[in-house]
């Protein structure tokens, strides 16, 4: 348990959980849905990738693509069930939250029913090699995880910043009413958003399965971590989520080093509660004060 090992581990986890958190954040801020079915999408895409590795090819790209596509499909499913029917009805946020919880319940139980409780593992998609960097050993999966997640998240963010669909999504984030006036279809954009965030969940699932196994309920813990990062960063803020991912990753590494593994969640929640008590809208509230008004 040397510092370098823990640190690299923390960075890797931060990257993956950050991916999840950014997905959650985008979902909340653009379509106004707290997607607690995210854990289910996560598990679903893990199984999708596993099926692809079983029946198509164990090539890393294929497995990764299969995971991302299944995740996007799961996102579309959640959108069709929990967003489309009720998005203009009263109490949408609460009902949407409960609907996604229901989907999560149904989905995980269905996965359990279909695939059984035994967990599966994916092939190593990044191969086996390692680099020794100033005494810190970096294995291929760690480097691969970090690089892929950063590249994909950056690509998604750049796409959102520059393209037309991205502009639509950002416009809908800020003022859905005005968005419909300029000709943005809320439902259509909802499908885009959910597909993208679902894809992000799928990516995180495949990447995380390099370290952990895939099981029907395996999506819960990553979702909680993603949620706590999104919370800590401020829902709807991508910058905040990135910073929060780094902070919480560091915290995890430090706690594991100084206090021991079982205290990680406790310190993490104390940290989150403290941050939220100071800034009820997370780090984003510190970043720009205008949002709070």
């Amino acid at each position: 348990m040397d510092v370098g090992f823990i640190l690299t581990n923390a960075i890797v986890l931060a990257c993956i959980y950050g991916t999840l958190a950014i997905g959650l954040s985008i979902t909340w801020s653009s379509v106004g849905l707290i997607n607690l079915g995210y854990g289910f999408i996560f598990a679903l895409s893990g199984y999708g990738a596993w099926l692809a590795s079983q029946y198509i090819s164990t090539n890393g790209v294929v497995v990764l693509t299969a995971g991302v596509l299944t995740g996007a499909l799961g996102g579309l499913l959640v959108c069709a069930l929990a967003f489309i029917p009720i998005h203009d009805k009263p109490n949408f946020t609460v009902r949407g939250l409960i609907a996604t919880l229901a989907i999560s319940l149904i989905g995980t139980q269905a996965l359990l029913y279909v695939f059984g409780p035994r967990s599966k593992n994916l092939p190593d998609i990044f191969g086996f090699w390692k680099i020794n960097l100033a005494g810190i050993v970096l294995t291929s999966d760690k480097i691969g995880n970090v690089v892929v997640s950063i590249v994909v998240v950056t690509a998604v963010l750049l796409w959102m910043r520059s393209s037309r669909r991205g502009l639509e999504i950002r416009a809908m984030m800020m003022n859905p009413h005005a968005a419909s006036i300029v000709g943005i279809g809320v439902r259509k954009t909802g499908f885009y958003v959910m597909a993208i965030t679902g894809g992000l969940a799928g990516l995180a699932a495949v990447l995380l399965s390099q370290t952990y196994y895939i099981s029907p309920f395996g999506g819960l813990a990553p979702m909680i971590k993603g949620v706590s990062i999104a919370l800590c960063g401020g829902l709807g803020s991508v910058r905040g989520a990135v910073i929060a991912a780094i902070i919480l990753g560091l915290n995890e590494a430090l706690t594991a080093r100084l206090l021991g593994g079982q205290y990680v969640l406790i310190t993490q929640f104390i940290l989150i509660i403290l941050i939220l008590l100071v800034r009820p809208r997370g780090i984003a509230g510190i970043l720009d004060r205008a949002r709070e008004a």
């Binding site: 950002r170 984030m173 003022n175 006036i181």
Partner: peptide
Amino acid sequence: LIPQGDEIFHGL
């Protein structure tokens, strides 16, 4: 439609 009041996207 150019609506009454400010229907704008604050952050853009």
